[in-house]
């Protein structure tokens, strides 16, 4: 336990260092992009005089080191700055979006993992049967299907034709169903393939033969002895998958008009809303750091042989 605590402390400290790096890199990258935020916000009809006035009001005329210093000192006080586009605090804009993104990523990952692990285990246990081939090719389809296409197919079938669920938005509880299915399809396919491969590897090991030789039921061998050990790489995949859903569900959010952070990030880049982009990227960075930590700790849960000192 003590070892685990030390491990966490060490990880948090190195993570802080990484976050400082992220803040600097994102600060520079958004400013290296061509395009003037003041002109984009003011529109084509604005005179250069008004654009200049907006530029000054936003503080974009100040030297870059000064702007970075303000950004960092603001961060230390928990202030991510003010959106150039909406002039509201970045944090106020970001938190509700983050919640929506987390919600969708969580439901998508959970559904995808449950289905994926089940399919993977079944595929491994019934290796080279018709069922296995069916599940394998199903996974292949799931991985290859563009989110865009799948999303619209679900909308056409379940919203436009059957009218079971809303086509888009987030104003009804059932709004989450179609985007969750879309995200889960991809996760499920990935998790299923990983689980099957990992299970097959474990099932070939000596201790499994021993377990079978002891006369244990096949079900016990599979679930109690094999699955637990096979889960390590699967957990990694689920963790990575969850991380990428947090940041990469842009297309799904966009197709379903889900008011999440992905769409906000893309819009903020298009509008050159520097503080908003900085804020979102930093929040992503923090989430990914936390997620990696959780996944590493989960290894120990799945395989008690793993120690953290």
């Amino acid at each position: 336990m003590k070892g685990t605590l030390q491990y966490i402390t060490r990880r948090v400290l190195t993570s802080l260092l990484a976050l400082v790096g992220v803040s600097l890199i994102v600060f520079i990258i958004v400013r290296v992009l061509p395009g003037d935020p003041a002109r984009i916000i003011a529109g084509l009809l604005a005179t250069e005089e008004e654009v200049e006035r907006i530029r000054v009001a936003m503080g974009l005329d100040r030297p870059l080191p000064v702007q970075y210093w303000d950004f960092v000192t603001g961060l230390l006080q928990g202030d991510l700055g003010t959106s150039l586009r909406t002039r509201r605090p970045v944090l106020v804009e970001l938190v509700p979006r983050l919640k929506m993104t987390m919600l969708l990523a969580t439901t998508g990952t959970i559904l995808g993992s449950l289905l994926g692990i089940t399919a993977g285990v079944v595929g491994a246990a019934r290796r080279y049967t018709r069922l296995d081939y069916l599940l394998s090719s199903g996974s292949l389809v799931g991985i290859s299907m563009p989110v865009y296409w799948l999303g619209y197919m679900l909308i056409i079938v379940f919203a436009v034709n059957l009218r079971w669920f809303p086509a888009a938005g987030a104003d009804e509880p059932s709004s989450i169903v179609l985007p969750t299915l879309t995200l889960a399809a991809f996760s499920m396919a990935l998790v299923a393939r990983m689980t099957r491969g990992s299970m097959l590897e474990v099932l070939g090991q000596d201790y499994i033969r021993t377990a079978r030789a002891k006369g244990l039921a096949e079900r016990v061998v599979i679930y109690r002895h094999a699955l637990r050990n096979a889960l390590i790489p699967v957990l990694t995949v689920i963790g990575l998958q969850f991380g990428s859903l947090l940041g990469g569900a842009v297309l799904t959010e966009s197709v379903f008009a889900w008011p999440g952070m992905g769409v906000l990030l893309v819009n903020s880049i298009i509008n050159r809303d520097y503080p908003m982009v900085q804020g979102i990227v930093l929040v992503y960075a923090v989430l990914v750091v936390l997620l990696n930590l959780v996944v590493d700790l989960a290894y120990g849960w799945a395989d008690p042989r793993i120690r953290y000192d």
């Binding site: 909308i155 919203a159 009218r163 086509a167 888009a168 008009a257 008011p259």
Partner: peptide, 18 residues
């Protein structure tokens, strides 16, 4: 006024009566 960035999604919403 609902914010729906994708044109095809707006059309689906209209066709589904949303």
């Amino acid at each position: 006024f609902q914010v729906v960035p994708e044109a095809a999604t707006r059309m689906s919403q209209l066709l589904s009566g949303q």
